[in-house]
């Protein structure tokens, strides 16, 4: 076990965990931030996507000892009042069906818009390739990202 000081959603948080613990489980089990979802554990589904200094990463393979002082953003910290343009667009397009993958989709899209504020359809498809949606809401996700990118 080792103590890590993490910057999560603008707050300093301290955890005492095994250094090999993925951020996914640090967030979910130790910090009670369960918006970041467990889907596959091997970076193949994107449900666990968080931002690390504004870049979308898979928290299931991001080990706590690799984070250092980088700023972590989770779905809970994407906006203060749940009104990030992506969150608003997601509600406008009523995207979710089961809803389980959507936090990861939104976080991955947030990373995309930081890097590329006005993505083309192809940019969106490429950037979102790693995020599975088992309910098949891909067309709405794309529409919501386009709405958010034009707001």
């Amino acid at each position: 076990m080792a103590v890590f000081n993490l910057n999560i959603n603008g707050k300093q948080q301290q955890v005492d965990v095994d250094p090999s613990t993925p951020m996914l489980w640090v967030l979910r089990d130790h910090l009670n931030l369960v918006g970041t979802k467990f889907g596959c554990g091997v970076a193949q589904c994107g449900a666990c996507t968080i931002l690390l200094d504004g870049m979308a990463v898979r928290s299931c393979i991001t080990f706590v000892d690799s984070v250092g002082d980088k700023k972590i953003t989770t779905i809970e910290g994407l906006s203060e009042n749940g009104d990030h343009p992506l969150q608003q667009a997601w509600l406008e397009h009523d995207v979710p069906q089961c809803g389980y993958c959507q936090a990861g989709q939104i976080m991955n899209a947030a990373g995309l818009l930081i890097a590329n504020p006005h993505p083309s359809d192809e940019d969106i498809e490429t950037a979102m390739h790693g995020n599975l949606c088992r309910c098949g809401t891909y067309t709405r996700i794309k529409a919501a990202i386009k709405t958010a990118s034009s707001s």
Binding site: L33, V34, G35, T36, T74, I75, E76, L78, G82, L86, Q87, W90, L91, D94, P96, G99, Q102, A103, I106
Partner: peptide, 12 residues
């Protein structure tokens, strides 16, 4: 709209 929509997009 989905009654759980807000909770879903805010990770509750």
């Amino acid at each position: 709209k989905n009654v759980d929509g807000f909770k879903i997009v805010t990770g509750q």
